[in-house]
Nucleic acid binder design. Structure first.
Lengths: 122, 122
DNA sequence: TGAACATATGAATAACTGTACATATGTTAT
DNA sequence: ATAACATATGTACAGTTATTCATATGTTCA
């Protein structure tokens, strides 16, 4: 039950609306996880990494070259992607090869680009 | 052409890989915009707002009640959603009613939840 | 016109985040 | 074992961000 104490008056009228919406809101935990996931996508470097790894398996130093970044920076960001379960990796000698470990990433990116292009004309 | 100067040796071997991937990478600008969009999704408050507004049009103070937040905080976040062209609004008397202005949001959220639930068992 | 309500906005602050630098760990070959 | 390479990680720091508080703007009604 919502708490309508000492707030806007208009909400008394809209009480039913708030209740209706409240019922369809997902679990707090799921919303938190969802935000955490999108946070991972909210960085150009990580977007690039995911895009690259969706195309082909690559080792860290190659990714560093591709993105023109420090090996350290790439490694740090790969850790974030690892924690989010978005990439997997295998060791082969001195190299560690990363690749995409998610089927939804591409679809989400595509939807994102759709939004961007639709609203394009600033 | 990639710059392979004074970097890892292994990249000399992988030069073709880097070149191949480089060719399929989207425009820098698109990737930036994409990250910006996801950044908007990367916050629990905004996720909640979008979810609520996807269900029903609501005014600011109702949203504040629903999310148990300050009117000011909600207003600030709605501004972010406005700038990202994710919500639209109409004034009716003293109230301003916001609603979702994007067809892709829901699909992206669903994909996100799919990922989360798939990888669930921590 | 002025009072009350609803929303927007500016400023300040605490918390968070991405990168660079230095260094540690892990692997191979000699 | 040791040197060289590849990757990971700890620390520090600059830049960003979400919220709060105070206040301004906009709207209605008496």
């Amino acid at each position: 039950m919502a708490d309508f104490a000492d707030r806007c008056d208009c909400t008394v009228i809209h009480e039913d609306v708030v209740e209706r919406v409240k019922e369809v809101m997902p679990e707090e935990e799921n919303l938190y996880d969802l935000a955490e996931l999108f946070k991972v996508f909210g960085d150009t470097t990580r977007i690039k990494l995911l895009w690259a790894l969706d195309k082909e398996e690559m080792c860290v130093c190659d990714l560093a070259i591709l993105l023109n970044m420090t090996q350290s920076a790439v490694s740090h960001q790969l850790r974030v992607l690892k924690q989010a379960r978005l990439v997997k990796f295998r060791r082969d000698g001195k190299n560690v090869y990363y690749s995409l470990d998610d089927d939804h990433v591409k679809l989400m990116f595509e939807q994102g680009l759709l939004h961007i292009n639709e609203k394009e004309p600033k």
